[in-house]
């Protein structure tokens, strides 16, 4: 089962972030191991551009971040396993015209993301958003 995040940005009507079915499966396993989870999209060196997955609340978001959407990975879709997806506001200014899908690849990314010890890595696949004006 893949998953589509809810729309949370005021004034928007189309979801900005999705999870591939592999990402949902992995997140359910990680939830069992670590409890509630969150994403913060990284930028910069090395493993920059990877979405970092942390125990919820481990990473302190602030006014410098924007919430792009909230996933629900619970099988019953009852809101019991909600995962927020965050990005820094300044990075969002350059990314806002693209839709993001969190996928999983084999690998060994560094950073403190919780999936790395499983021998896999979350990765972003992007496509242009029909509803957003590129390079406005």
């Amino acid at each position: 089962m893949s998953a589509v995040a809810t729309v949370v940005i005021p004034g928007e009507t189309v979801s900005r972030v999705s999870l591939s079915s592999e990402a949902v499966d992995l997140l359910r396993r990680l939830w069992d191991m670590h409890g509630p989870l969150m994403f913060h999209q990284s930028g910069g060196c090395c493993d920059g551009s990877s979405p970092m997955c942390f125990p919820a609340g481990d990473f302190m978001t602030s006014a410098a971040d924007v919430l792009l959407g909230i996933f629900d990975i619970s099988p019953a879709q009852d809101g019991s396993q909600r995962i927020e997806f965050w990005m820094s506001t300044e990075q969002f200014e350059y990314w806002s015209h693209t839709h993001l899908t969190v996928d999983v690849v084999k690998g060994r990314g560094s950073g403190f993301s919780v999936e790395a010890p499983e021998g896999v890595r979350f990765m972003i696949r992007s496509r242009l958003m029909e509803t957003a004006t590129p390079f406005a």
Binding site: G44, C45, D47, M52, F59, G111
Partner: peptide
């Protein structure tokens, strides 16, 4: 040395 999210963390 690494990326921005871990840097902030």
């Amino acid at each position: 040395t690494g990326e921005t999210t871990t840097g902030r963390l």
